[in-house]
């Protein structure tokens, strides 16, 4: 792995990203590894297959590994460093659940509670990290595949799954990069979730294309991310990372944040229909999230691939009004 990272750097210096694309084309440059890997998805790590070949040393990578192993232990502490991600489940799990349920009952009338509402749905959780979002989705009955380019994240996720093997029997994790599976598993998933990941991705357009490729016609993709506004800089970077320390310092690179309009455009370019754009707000005092109409800090987007599913009726016009 270390060697590979070194290689990556060389390649980058040579200005050629072509080879790198094999495993992490949309990921951010390795030079910023130390600053960014601590986010819930350690996307900077290369694929596990390659890590076997490691042997050399690299100062940056050593630090990275040390930091990661420290933070891996923090993954599942609901009041620890990832508390905000744990409580974000309050919004994103119902969002994904209802988005998928709307595919089979578009009107949403018969919302009778069922113990395993998502039974039979195949979901891909992109950038699953330690599995904070994958586990609740699996508990709802879905067949969840969590992928993350970070071997460490996948290790944590796999380990944590064993603590509740019965309830999480439909959950599988793989160390993989999305564009590696985009072709092979094209149109496999009823739902794809890319939560708090795209803001770390370098080739965002390629990332979105890969996401759209993976869902079946009629299937949903759900993004949650941060917008690139002064407010998100003030709150997401200055307040959250430096003052309140809700998020590890350096977790985010503001320049990579995507405006809701930009993300919507990328999604539409892939022939998807936007269903919903909604703002999310984190209250650091209660450590709780709530839905707001304003999308200038955190927001979620739900889009549907046109196709044969019952849900494919057009409703994108109404969703645009949400995006204020």
């Amino acid at each position: 792995m270390n060697i590979l990272s070194g290689t990556v750097r060389t390649i980058k210096n040579a200005g050629s990203w072509a080879i790198l694309r094999v495993c992490q084309s949309y990921r951010q440059p390795v030079a910023s590894v130390v600053n960014t890997h601590r986010n819930h998805s350690s996307y900077n790590k290369v694929c596990c297959r390659h890590s076997e070949a490691s042997g050399g040393t690299n100062t940056i990578d050593d630090e990275e590994v040390a930091l990661f192993s420290r933070h891996a232990n923090e993954w599942w502490n609901e009041t620890g460093e990832f508390a905000a991600l744990h409580s974000l489940n309050d919004l994103r799990v119902p969002l994904v659940r209802d988005a998928l349920l709307a595919q089979i009952t578009p009107s949403g009338d018969n919302k009778t509670l069922k113990p395993m509402p998502l039974a039979g749905f195949n979901i891909l959780d992109v950038g699953c990290g330690g599995g904070i979002l994958s586990e609740p989705l699996a508990r709802l009955g879905a067949n969840v595949t969590g992928i993350d380019a970070s071997e460490e994240g996948i290790k944590v996720a796999k380990w944590h799954k064993t603590l509740d093997p019965e309830a999480l029997s439909r959950l599988n994790y793989r160390c993989a990069a999305i564009e590696n599976i985009a072709t092979a598993e094209a149109e496999t998933y009823d739902g794809l979730v890319a939560s708090e990941i795209i803001e770390h991705v370098t080739d965002q357009r390629g990332f979105v294309t890969a996401c759209c490729q993976l869902v079946k016609p009629g299937g949903s993709i759900v993004f949650t991310t941060l917008s690139r506004t002064y407010l998100s800089y003030a709150l997401g970077i200055v307040a959250a990372e430096r003052i309140l320390r809700i998020v590890p310092a350096g977790a985010h690179d503001w320049k990579k944040f995507v405006l809701p309009d930009e993300l919507q455009d990328m999604i539409r370019e892939n022939g998807m229909n936007i269903r919903l754009v909604h703002g999310m707000m984190f209250n650091p005092l209660t450590s709780r999230w709530s839905w707001i109409s304003d999308t200038s800090i955190n927001y979620a987007i739900h889009a549907v691939k046109p196709g044969k599913s019952a849900s494919s009726s057009e409703s994108s016009s109404s969703s645009d009004s949400d995006s204020g």
């Binding site: 609901e78 744990h86 799990v93 119902p94 659940r97 586990e135 609740p136 508990r139 709802l140």
Partner: peptide
């Protein structure tokens, strides 16, 4: 219905 662990403190 939110797929949470029933015993978590939140």
């Amino acid at each position: 219905y939110e797929g949470k662990d029933v015993g978590s403190l939140g």
